[in-house]
Design a protein around this nucleic acid. Sequence first.
DNA 1: TGTATTAGTGTATCACGTACACAGTGTGAG
DNA 2: CTCACACTGTGTACGTGATACACTAATACA
Lengths: 287, 287
Amino acid sequence: MAAKKSKPRSRGATQAKTPLAHATDRPITHEDVMQASARIDPDLRRRSQLLWEDRSRPTRGPKPALTPDDVVQAAIEIADEKGLAALTMQAVSSKLGFTTMAVYRYFPSKEALFDAIVDAGLGLPPKPPLPRGDWRAELTQWAHAKRAMLIARPWLAELPFVAAPHGPNWLAWLEAVVDSLSATSLNEADKGQMLSILDGYSRGASDTSISLARARARGISEKEWAAAVGADLGRAIGDPRFPKFAALITAPADGRARTLEESFDFGLQRVLDGIELYIKSRTSPES
Amino acid sequence: MAAKKSKPRSRGATQAKTPLAHATDRPITHEDVMQASARIDPDLRRRSQLLWEDRSRPTRGPKPALTPDDVVQAAIEIADEKGLAALTMQAVSSKLGFTTMAVYRYFPSKEALFDAIVDAGLGLPPKPPLPRGDWRAELTQWAHAKRAMLIARPWLAELPFVAAPHGPNWLAWLEAVVDSLSATSLNEADKGQMLSILDGYSRGASDTSISLARARARGISEKEWAAAVGADLGRAIGDPRFPKFAALITAPADGRARTLEESFDFGLQRVLDGIELYIKSRTSPES
DNA sequence: TGTATTAGTGTATCACGTACACAGTGTGAG
DNA sequence: CTCACACTGTGTACGTGATACACTAATACA
């Protein structure tokens, strides 16, 4: 056995629930978490660590010409311009003006680099407008921002980033939702639930626009994209298997067509309606 | 220039809105669609075609030893057992007992094979229980089924399948929702909206469970997975950037913890609440 | 029966991830 | 102050995977 294959190892991750065992009554500390993490898949553990540790340079040898951030930046630019497929270690290094192997001084593997790219790509959530307290408005802003972020970096959704270690920016997005929900009367557990709902909707309902964005990055016009999508969906027309759907897409538009963003917002408001309904039912006893 | 690189071409696809231009008053036919599709990226067009055309064998040469379906089946088995990363053309062919290049007689590229795998992996939606008409119950069943499907094939979410051509099974899932919504008073446009909402939530809110499923496929126990996720999320504890989220995950569980499926269902009911509210507002004039 | 067509094979090539060994560079320990 | 060691970037090599191309064998229609 000589060279080793790239092990498709590692995974982890996700939204909110089932985060930690609430076995004892004493509040959980960072210590507890770190202790629990002792028995985690070492590969995953290392990746997560790379994402969180402060990369303080050792003092010994020559000064590195780059920072991990430079590498991440270059990688993101490549993904933005040419797509994920073009994001190779050689592309990154040559963009930086170094040899391929130089990158490995900053990230031990492509996978680790991807982890960093994902977190950097997420960026930070927007700051809610200042008279705080309007949770519904704040969550609306949040969801639109998340959608915009996913559209701006359509390659993010192409990575199984639910399976990657969660970095600081990921947590920042979650924090923002919980923070907005603080204005409600929900208990912690319910806040977690609402976080899942909102996060789930925002992610899933952005797929259409992400697809468009990806096409656009390939130089395809919105018209062409719509034609391609329409052609696929249009196969339903005349096909006995899809009568209802065919009727839906052939129905004349009664009024102005909605933009994708308007569509997203419409759905978002329905979701928030559902959340609001729940909050009210918790507040004013109705049963 | 000799061999060509794998071109990271092709994309397309998605949910419901903006499907076709409703320019004229005459209902859109399959003809219209096919005509519109004439100017689509030829690569995409070909992929979509492969997904839909009946692969009737020409009569001339030797009889093929396999069917496209055999290939798809083998590929799916590999993905199920070893994960997407192990799904190579050589793996597929050797599983079938042929040389690598033999597979290319059935699918012109790995990408085309993936398209077929995605559609096959989606499978068909469940049949709604027979006293039809309870749209809410039917959509609940649908959403749970979709979630279960994604969990059963966690590699599906790893593919940018929103960007792939939509095959028959994809449409079948959409059809099922629209069909259930027929019991409501919604117009076609609104049905499309509700479809987007439900599809979006089901997809996005399943991420957590998909991650777990993926971990499980790698031989990681639920405990280990929870520890890894918890370790990442637990970094919030003590970090001044994430006070609210830290409070959330350290709050003592007041009662039985919800399973992931219960969590999904809880959110789903909120979403359906929102949809129901809208339906009612359309029915009984309130403004 | 022969010829055009097609299935599966063998081989070659190129891109990519990454291991390994080397050379040059600073810095703290002596 | 100096030297050895830690560390950076380079050059090279390898294995794997996708896939082009040319070849042989099979088969049905003219």
